[in-house]
């Protein structure tokens, strides 16, 4: 089967699953819950209260999207990526469908790439969902107005959309790196659930290690190091260091774990 057709059919399988839609709905519920609670509360959050930027939400609905990304990035979003990427190879293996996918010659590398691209598409859709739902519910409940950046300068609606798009791009890049780790773990086992759990645990472990001052030398190499670094995109002028360093770091993770997955998957005995 040709690559594009395989990708198309994989995407159809992914977005036909109830599980996928349930995860996207769970992600979408976070900005909605947040916006509704702030709207109904008689006492609007003051500066520095609640998650970052929450006090900004009442001025400009756009910030619902940014605050929702702050809240979903450490746990909810990586969990969904863990489910999708951990399932890629191990899920097929546990259903016994992996060997049928591999009947075509030279199929393993292609399957690996197509499966990975499917997860990347899911990562884009996941952060896009949080952004779009955040914008929509924010604009509906609070309207759009001037937004205040961390530096104290105010920006208009167009600029706010642009900045939240950048934040979304940053989060997506983080998830693309995680997806590569998840796919490698998925090639190690025939138990899909085990792979998903391992990816989720790894995410938490990396974030805990990132909190320990004694391991400061390790921090720049942790894949979670820049996950919340997108605050730098909300200063004037934009600080690009976190964004570019993160992109390079995630690129290195994709290259390394992609190579590991290639080594593992092309030498593996596929029995199921």
């Amino acid at each position: 089967m040709r690559g594009e057709r395989l990708l198309g059919s994989e995407l159809r399988v992914l977005f036909r699953r109830w599980r996928t839609w349930a995860m996207l709905a769970a992600l979408a519920s976070i900005p909605i819950l947040m916006a509704v609670v702030v709207r109904l509360s008689s006492d609007p959050p003051g500066p520095g209260e609640g998650p970052p930027f929450l006090d900004q939400v009442t001025n400009n609905g756009m910030f619902v999207a940014v605050t929702a990304l702050v809240m979903t990035t450490p746990l909810f979003m990586p969990l969904t990526i863990a489910v999708v990427s951990g399932d890629t190879i191990a899920g097929e293996a546990s259903l016994g469908t992996l060997r049928y996918l591999l009947v075509a010659p030279a199929g393993r590398v292609r399957l690996l790439v197509v499966k990975y691209l499917t997860t990347v598409v899911f990562a884009v859709v996941a952060s896009g969902t949080v952004l779009l739902v955040g914008w929509a519910i924010g604009a509906a409940l609070f309207g759009t107005g001037e937004a205040t950046l961390l530096s104290g300068d105010t920006i208009g609606v167009g600029d706010a959309v642009l900045r939240s798009l950048l934040v979304g791009a940053h989060v997506t890049i983080c998830m693309i790196g995680l997806a590569a780790i998840g796919q490698f773990i998925s090639t190690l086992t025939d138990a899909g659930v085990g792979a998903m759990a391992a990816v989720a645990v790894l995410t938490i472990v990396a974030q805990v290690l990132g909190q320990l001052d004694q391991l400061a030398w390790l921090h720049p190499w942790l894949f979670t190091h820049h996950w919340l670094g997108f605050a730098d995109l909300l200063r004037t002028p934009i600080v690009w260091t976190s964004f570019t360093e993160n992109a390079a770091l995630q690129g290195a993770y994709v290259a390394f774990f992609g190579a590991l997955a290639y080594g593992r998957f092309t030498t593996k005995d596929v029995l199921s």
């Binding site: 290195a252 290259a255 390394f256 190579a259 590991l260 290639y262 080594g263 092309t266 030498t267």
Partner: peptide, 16 residues
């Protein structure tokens, strides 16, 4: 052949 397939995984850290 098995070894050559693990080569990229060894090469990437070196390049980085």
């Amino acid at each position: 052949r098995t070894l050559t397939r693990w080569l990229p995984a060894a090469a990437v850290p070196l390049v980085i």
